[in-house]
Design a protein around this nucleic acid. Structure first.
Lengths: 189, 189
DNA sequence: GGGATTCCTTAAAGTATCTTAAGAAAGAAT
DNA sequence: ATTCTTTCTTAAGATACTTTAAGGAATCCC
């Protein structure tokens, strides 16, 4: 089970077995059904999560009470409510399972302690954060330069997995359009 | 001159003087006039930059040849073309001065070598990357939840500095609207 | 298997934003 | 000072996208 995370980590950094084990020992395994909250808006996020199986999304509610999805996570993705986690402040976002999920979590207090003893861990999380920056910049660009129809095509082509697994109204909210308009885009071509 | 960077770093991490000096010794001081390129689209970005004075923006050209600003940097901000820098691949973005600028730069080869000898540096750049993630997430949310007029008000209120220093057509490109529409927003209230 | 949710589609009317084109204002260059 | 270039404004017509409202299709549940 935790083998999957070890394999993932080795793609980025050369940990010794002892280091890796010390890290992994602090991670707790969680299973959750679909449509369950991992974190609710307003709570303080104390953990970082690594998804082993399933599908998760991070969202908030706008003034009209609509869910606005800001990101998805699939197998082998890290997720958390980063600003809340770092500042230990109330989260703007909720995190919820879309499918039944299995994931690992590690507490900020544990991870911060490990940082002091395992320099490689700093490197690993630096690389993770940099990857997030790149992904976010790409997303921003795509929204800036494409109209909805192009965004839809782009994501359908580049993340076909999502489009089979995620309900349409969530895709619409991620593409920043209404479900009605998405439906018309899908059928107009 | 480099004192300014030291002060900035100490806000985040406790470096020893020796560590800090080893790091700073590898940074080179550059001065540039306004409207000069620091990096051009298609080049590989070999450096990270710390802005001491002036104003810089990162942008790309869309299909119609319009500049699309994806970020600004002011005094005491780090900037680079991150994806290009990390993967050493051609940059999607150009980086250009808006005002006359003074900045420090450090080469990837030097920084990577320093990472191996100064663990604190890993931590520092991890924190920098995390801050970028937070800033980008905020930006994404604001674009998702606000219509242009609200975005304009939001940025004008929260970053008044920009609005005095940056030409309107660049603000428009950052707000993801046309200069014409920005102009009409400004005068309609 | 039937009723209740939840999700997806259709269509019409309305709105935010863009495009184009032209002129005004401001800055830079000679 | 005058010209040239860059930036900002105005306005009319076009279009991408939303809102509302309703019906249809899936899925969940007892």
């Amino acid at each position: 089970m935790k083998q999957q995370l070890k394999k993932y980590i080795h793609r980025y950094v050369d940990f010794s077995d002892a280091e890796l084990d010390a890290f992994i020992a602090k991670m707790e395994l969680i299973k959750l059904e679909k449509k369950k909250f991992i974190l609710e808006e307003g709570e303080i996020c104390h953990h970082q999560y690594f998804l082993l199986e399933g599908l998760v999304h991070t969202f908030y509610l706008d003034q009209d009470g609509n869910e606005r999805t800001s990101s998805f996570a699939l197998e082998n993705w890290w997720f958390t409510s980063l600003e809340s986690y770092i500042k230990q402040s109330p989260s703007f976002y909720s995190i919820q399972t879309i499918e039944p999920c299995v994931f690992l979590k590690i507490a900020k207090t544990d991870l911060d302690a490990l940082f002091d003893t395992i320099p490689n861990l700093e490197k690993f999380f630096r690389l993770m954060a940099q990857n997030m920056v790149i992904a976010l910049q790409r997303r921003t660009d795509i929204y800036q330069k494409m109209i909805s129809k192009e965004r839809y095509e782009y994501f359908r082509r580049n993340f076909p997995e999502f489009f089979q697994r995620v309900p349409q109204y969530l895709i619409a909210s991620y593409l920043e359009i209404t479900p009605e308009y998405l439906s018309s885009l899908r059928n107009s071509k």
